[in-house]
Design a protein around this nucleic acid. Sequence first.
DNA 1: TATGAATGAGCGTTCATTCAT
DNA 2: TATGAATGAACGCTCATTCAT
Lengths: 192, 192, 192, 192
Amino acid sequence: MKNIKDFDKKEAIFQAMLELISKHGFHSSPMSEVAKQADVAAGTIYHYFKSKDELICALYVRLREKFVANLFKTDDVNKTFKDRFRHFYLHMIQEAIKNPKEFYFLEQFANSPFISTIIKTEITRLEQPIYDFLRKAVFTQVLRDIPPKILIAFVMGSASSIIKLQLSGEFQMTSSDLELAFFTCWDGIKKG
Amino acid sequence: MKNIKDFDKKEAIFQAMLELISKHGFHSSPMSEVAKQADVAAGTIYHYFKSKDELICALYVRLREKFVANLFKTDDVNKTFKDRFRHFYLHMIQEAIKNPKEFYFLEQFANSPFISTIIKTEITRLEQPIYDFLRKAVFTQVLRDIPPKILIAFVMGSASSIIKLQLSGEFQMTSSDLELAFFTCWDGIKKG
Amino acid sequence: MKNIKDFDKKEAIFQAMLELISKHGFHSSPMSEVAKQADVAAGTIYHYFKSKDELICALYVRLREKFVANLFKTDDVNKTFKDRFRHFYLHMIQEAIKNPKEFYFLEQFANSPFISTIIKTEITRLEQPIYDFLRKAVFTQVLRDIPPKILIAFVMGSASSIIKLQLSGEFQMTSSDLELAFFTCWDGIKKG
Amino acid sequence: MKNIKDFDKKEAIFQAMLELISKHGFHSSPMSEVAKQADVAAGTIYHYFKSKDELICALYVRLREKFVANLFKTDDVNKTFKDRFRHFYLHMIQEAIKNPKEFYFLEQFANSPFISTIIKTEITRLEQPIYDFLRKAVFTQVLRDIPPKILIAFVMGSASSIIKLQLSGEFQMTSSDLELAFFTCWDGIKKG
DNA sequence: TATGAATGAGCGTTCATTCAT
DNA sequence: TATGAATGAACGCTCATTCAT
């Protein structure tokens, strides 16, 4: 009983914060509003999190983990790497577009001084699966011989930028546009 | 005399805000601190800007204009498009690395809800030179036939991600790494 | 069994509060911390005490009673009054120095607005043994003919001040210093 | 003009805090109430003092200085030491009784953990005049040969206790009572 | 123009107390 | 009895903005 309740409250707080920050930014998301939206008392938040900053960081880690786990959930290791990567790239974009709040939150966080409060080893840990995925492909000469870190930056950066374009509403992407985006990326990173 | 002085103060305020925000983020950059760092009285800022938000937006527009102008300052229209693009891509990365404060500010702003307070036509205007540059290359069949907006997103997103990688300090990029990054991008976007 | 347990918990709560207040003061001694230090749940405290204030007052009364009882425990009514007073005075100082937490708590309480929440008759009761002790000596012309209340104030005030001097650490008192202090007091209050 | 205004506000804040703390104690004297009573905005207090603690400490130092200065203002160095001490002792008690708020504040502070946030040298400085006054009398063999620190403790402790007795309202001291108190102290500390 | 003291709404956070279990 | 999650009023403090000078 207690566990269920706990889960509910903590979850509700996470959801409320996510909603507010994605819409209004960090400093226009007061704890009082979070409490109201999560339907808990202000003080209750502090049973689950030491401070606003800690709550935000915990939310970041949580969403990143979920995001990465999601990426590989439908991965099929029996396919060719190209197919796997295609799925990976398009799935990432589609998921982000389906969950704009989470995407906005993650981007906002990653581009704020907040990010430096999260220790590097933690960030490395969160990126590990993507890192491994791409490094192996470099190693097996499927991908261009570039440091995997650069490869990740390239792939993730282009994808995130395309997601923002779509979410901004100033350009409606069709599925053939998405396919084009994939090929643009693939032709850049593939070997030869 | 007065104009020069005005210019000085406005400039000092811009600089102070840039410094603070790039280091501490929007909500840890109080106007009182900006005033102190700019060596003006708090009230003085309000002679030049209606509000903190307006100051931040003005700073954004200013830096974006400077940034784009910079990109094409050393552009040589007589070279091949590939060479011009190479110069464009590498120059952009190098400039950002040389001016981390400006880069951090721009990224922070672009990923915050602030951005939505700047009207779309203004954003379009700021991007116009890059848009034209790439669109023409699509038109002349030098680049892959993709909507230029996607092209911009792809190119700028990958570049900005690579810049962050370098500035984060977790990966030291050599000039040959940069060259690799360029080819990765180029092979993705070029025709055929 | 239950009584013993009760006693244990109540005692633990008293001890925890004493420790915290003597170190951090009234308003930096939250009930949650008291609970933690007493190893009981926060709510449990409210089974034994109506409120924080009541707990603090009960602790005060308790410590005062203990303190006064202690003073006369080793009193020898067969000695001369001077010897009895000497023992009383020096014992008081030594006990306080041995129990700094209790002393600090009592002083803090006695000098705070809290004290006024304790009814005067209660205070009178607590002081009664000392009052009787001194009054009789006035009556029998061993002590100067001063209102006993003033006598108490004089004796207790000088003693408490000397205790604070020692506990503050800025002056290490030797036993001959203590003897001197006793004579200073005695020569002041004795008859003739 | 500005100086006068400054003085007024700072003074008003000091007065308000003094009034509140002497009546309700530290933690029942919220800054909002201080602001209200001083007739300034809450934020204004923070132009003059960094924090509530700093304000309280500044007030303490201020009152102690005033208190000590007052003690020696009407001192007549041509009189005998006994007369000077008599004046000192009685004046101290009378002044405290005339200014109960200041007395209560000082006692409350001196008996709280606050006091340890004030550096020892500062406390020594505040006590210096009294220290010098008594030490010289020890040196010239007018007073008993006791460490001056103990002497101070003895004199000040007994006086403060007598003041509390009077202020508590449970005993109305006549001027002959005061005279008695003086002799009690004097006979204790005088040589021979 | 320029100043900076003053404002006060609103923030993040604490903590005495309650109550369902 | 005993628990400790939950409450929410109240706290200390910040800071964008104003305005008399």
